[in-house]
């Protein structure tokens, strides 16, 4: 296999950046799981907190999107 070392670096970097998505996955899972356990304890209060749930998921997910963006930048823009 022959090739450009810079290109190899881009692919490796993009792959490494994708690890960050795992962190976002953990974060989203934590948010949703804790919401569910809280909602099961007090289902009456759960409905009013759906907005908070989505805000929390959005914040956690944003970081995963950042890592995805870094991967894309490495693949296509560098």
């Amino acid at each position: 296999m022959e090739g450009n070392i810079a290109e190899m670096g881009q692919f490796i970097g993009a792959g490494l950046a994708c690890i960050g998505m795992g962190g976002a996955g953990i974060g989203v899972g934590t948010v949703a799981g804790n919401f569910l356990s809280g909602a099961l304890r007090n289902p009456a209060a759960a409905g009013a907190q759906t907005a908070t749930l989505f805000i929390g998921i959005a914040f956690a997910e944003a970081l995963g999107i950042f890592s995805f963006l870094v991967a894309l930048l490495l693949m296509f823009a560098v």
């Binding site: 959005a58 914040f59 997910e61 944003a62 999107i65 950042f66 995805f68 963006l69 894309l72």
Partner: peptide, 16 residues
């Protein structure tokens, strides 16, 4: 930054 990239990133990721 996060406000804009969240939206664009999600949509772009899905389509890609």
């Amino acid at each position: 930054v996060s406000h804009s990239i969240r939206l664009a990133g999600n949509v772009m990721a899905g389509h890609a």
